[in-house]
Structure formats: C-alpha cells, structure tokens
Design a protein around this nucleic acid. Structure first.
Lengths: 146, 146
DNA sequence: TGTTGACTTAAAGTGTACTTTAAGTAATAT
DNA sequence: ATATTACTTAAAGTACACTTTAAGTCAACA
C-alpha cells in the first residue's frame, strides 16, 4: 500500500485573505508581527493551507476578546516553545478573560443608559414626556445609574 | 422674600477631571471637539458646574457603547439645535444601539472560544487530555465554533 | 516675596492597527 | 504579444483618541 498523501489545498495570499476575512496587506502585517508564518512557493510567493485558516480564525477570536497584537505575539512565541509554556499561556488567557469580563459588565451598563435615552426620546416624540412628572421620574432613574 | 440663589459649586478643570474620571488635557481636547463648553472666570480660567458632571458622564456612557468622538459631536450639535432634531438624535442612538448589539453578539462568541481554550489548557495541565479521545472531542467542539 | 502648583495656549508627539504607495516581478487572459 | 492582475518588498501614510511639550500666566502659601 502506498502512503496516501492527500495533497492539501494551497491558498494564495489573496484567496487566503478572502477565506479568513482579512486583506492581503493585513496578513503580511500579521506575518511581520510573528502571528503567522506561511510557506513559500519556489518563486517566492506565499501560500497557506487549510490548517492556517483555523489558526488565523482562532487568533481573531482571541483578538476579539481584547488581546492586542503584542499579546497575541507573546502567545504565539510561547506556543512555539512547546508544552513547557502552557502555564504561561493559560495565565495570559485567564488575564485576558478577567479583563474582558470587567469590560463586558461596563459595556452592559453603557447599553442600559443608551436604552434609557432612546426610550426617553421615544416617549418625548410621542408626547408623553411633556408632563414634568414623568420627566422627574426619568431624571430619578438616570440618577440611579450614577 | 429674597430670591434664593443657591450658588452652584464651581469646579476647576483639575477638580472636574477627578470628578468625571478624565484628565485635564482630555477635557480640553473634548472641548476643542465641541463636546463640552465650560464657563470662564474673569481671569480666563475654565470652571465647570454640577450639571456638567452628569453631562460628561452621559457622554462617556454613549462613548462606551461605541460612539466615536465625531458621532458624539454630531449628537451635541443636534442637541444644541433644539427639539426639532430629536428624530435625528433618536436615529443616531438607534443606529449606535444596533451596531452595539452586533458587536455584543460577536464578542460573546469570542469569549466562548476563549473559554474553550482555557478549559482545554486546564484539562491538559491536569493530564486529562493526553488521551486522543477527548482531544478529538475538543476538536469537534472547536469545529462547531466555525 | 519667592516658589510651588495649577492653570493657559498651540503644536507636536504617541500608540495601535492597520493601509497605502512605490517600484518591481510573475502569471494569466485575449 | 500584450495587457491585466496578483504577487513581492520596504517604507511612508492614516485614523482615532488622546498625551506631552513648551512657554507663559496666575494664585496661594511660608
């Protein structure tokens, strides 16, 4: 039996960019920052494989939780260093999560205020809040949001 | 009976900065952007009043929902133009809210992936995930996160 | 009365994350 | 064969939201 070598699909930087929802320049930028390391064809052009898609998407998820490029880079460096750095990586991700949760709570509070204001404008538009009583009620509520 | 003129407290820019959790330079910057318009003492120094605290805090809530400085400025301009611009203001705030909710959902998904990864590291650290079965399970879960 | 600290302005600088440009090579379509 | 399109690099430019600097004024305290 010959070894079954499933030739993996090779993506040009343009096709890969579409696949992960970034631009080619952004991918090159991420590469200079050490986040990705694509392969090269004989003519010097980059190519990416399927596995790289998952990797970039995972990076974008981490980025979406608030990790900066430099934090991502640190994570990548630790990852490349092997399993010995799992504690460091775990600590970093936990810190990111903690920061995220703080932001998440704050942002929910901001939304609450935004909703209050939208409701207030809608009441005002429909003529309800021309009476000073409900305006006072609004102010009271606002006050409690600190 | 003489008119009871409760003299409002006047905040210097430094004290006001502390009160709203910003720096004096940031307050001056916001002023150049048209978000705030403090009063001036005879000697040219700015002073702020209690009502300005609520105003700035409200602006910061809006900012926290994703509004840019220029959107805040637009809001302020409309506000200064009077009640005729309530529809515009309402539309802006609704757009901000809609954008916020999209981001909010995305960010929750990012958190889910982050949590998965943290759990995976913790399992791996405690030696559970050395067996290929649960690693496959992890990969499956990961796959479903797209 | 001097010196410390807070204020004033305008302008330049910073950090983050890209984005764009320039100049050139290579592959594809007509 | 030629024109278009995608790629290559290094470097400069952009957007946003401040932050810092410089040079000077003003008020309060020892």
């Amino acid at each position: 039996m010959p070894t079954e070598t499933t030739t993996e699909r090779q993506y040009s930087i343009g096709d890969f960019a579409k696949a992960v929802g970034l631009t080619a320049p952004t991918l090159r930028y991420y590469e200079t920052e050490g986040l990705i390391e694509p392969h090269r064809l004989a003519n010097g052009r980059r190519y990416y494989e399927e596995a790289d898609i998952n990797w970039v998407k995972f990076l974008l998820h981490l980025k979406g939780t608030g990790m900066s490029i430099s934090e991502l880079k640190q994570y990548v460096v630790w990852r490349a260093a092997g399993d010995d750095t799992i504690p460091e990586r775990l600590e970093l991700l936990k810190k990111v999560k903690a920061d995220f949760l703080v932001q998440f709570n704050e942002v929910q509070h901001h939304l609450q205020i935004l909703n209050d204001k939208i409701n207030w404008y809608e009441e005002k538009e429909s003529g309800i809040t021309d009476d000073p009583e409900s305006f006072r009620a609004y102010l009271d509520r606002f006050g409690h949001h600190e």
